[in-house]
Nucleic acid binder design. Structure first.
Lengths: 126, 126
DNA sequence: CAGCAATATAAAGATCACTTGAGTATGAGG
DNA sequence: CCTCATACTCAAGTGATCTTTATATTGCTG
């Protein structure tokens, strides 16, 4: 199992999932995707892009100059897409488990559903 | 907005959500809840319990001695429950957004059933 | 009964993504 | 002119986690 991603890393990969973007474009896309709730810092972003490139989760797509400013575009690699899918699934299951446990701890208003299951180890279906 | 939790912190709170437990019991509960996929380390656990107590997200419940070993039980505070609920919701939304973006990036096989990003796609420069 | 696993907690140092804060440079708009 | 937005870079500091080590008791097994 891969180590869990930190929030900035998760959002950088998510911002690149639909199409290639340059660094500053990632900043804007993350802000847009999160309704302004997550704002990456420049220092975090560029360091993370270098690290993710070294890890093979993203790669440089092409460079271009717009209005005299150079941009470097990055795209998600297939390893990056796989890692992001796995992370999204991990988050989904984690959220579900937390909700179940919280419900189990609240004033029991009656026998709810079966005992709290968990992370399926193998293919499952919920 | 509170800072996102790291994985061990999230699972410690989740393990305490249904009922008070002692440190070692948290270790076992986390392993159970995650189907053995997450195993907290003792060093991480006890340091985190101290930190979370200082932050008011958990608090000591009572001490007891079982088979000659002393246990210290902890319980989630109401602030802790609120924080965990918020975190679970954040995870749920993050997972959903990542999935949508990944779907938007995959070869479009036709109009999606659910809904892909209902956001403007092209436009900015290019 | 010796030895090891499991139970139960504690604490020191290392690690590394992230934060903070500063800097460089161009172009657009008031 | 001056400021904001764009676009990227780098160094130092932070902090939760990881790693390792230590302590002590009980239960199981050879």
């Amino acid at each position: 199992m891969a180590k869990p991603m930190r929030e900035p890393t998760f959002w950088i990969l998510t911002a690149l999932a639909a199409e290639p973007r340059h660094g500053y474009g990632v900043l804007q896309e993350v802000s847009r995707l999160t309704g302004g709730q997550v704002k990456l810092l420049a220092g975090t972003l560029y360091a993370a892009l270098d690290r993710l490139t070294a890890e093979g989760l993203v790669e440089a797509d092409h460079d271009e100059v717009v209005d005299g400013r150079s941009r470097r575009y990055y795209r998600l690699t297939s390893d990056g897409a796989t890692a992001l899918e796995a992370e999204a699934e991990r988050l989904r299951l984690s959220a579900r488990t937390a909700r179940q446990q919280l419900a189990a701890g609240r004033p029991e208003l009656g026998p709810a559903l079966g005992r709290t299951a968990a992370f399926p180890k193998l293919g499952r279906l919920a």
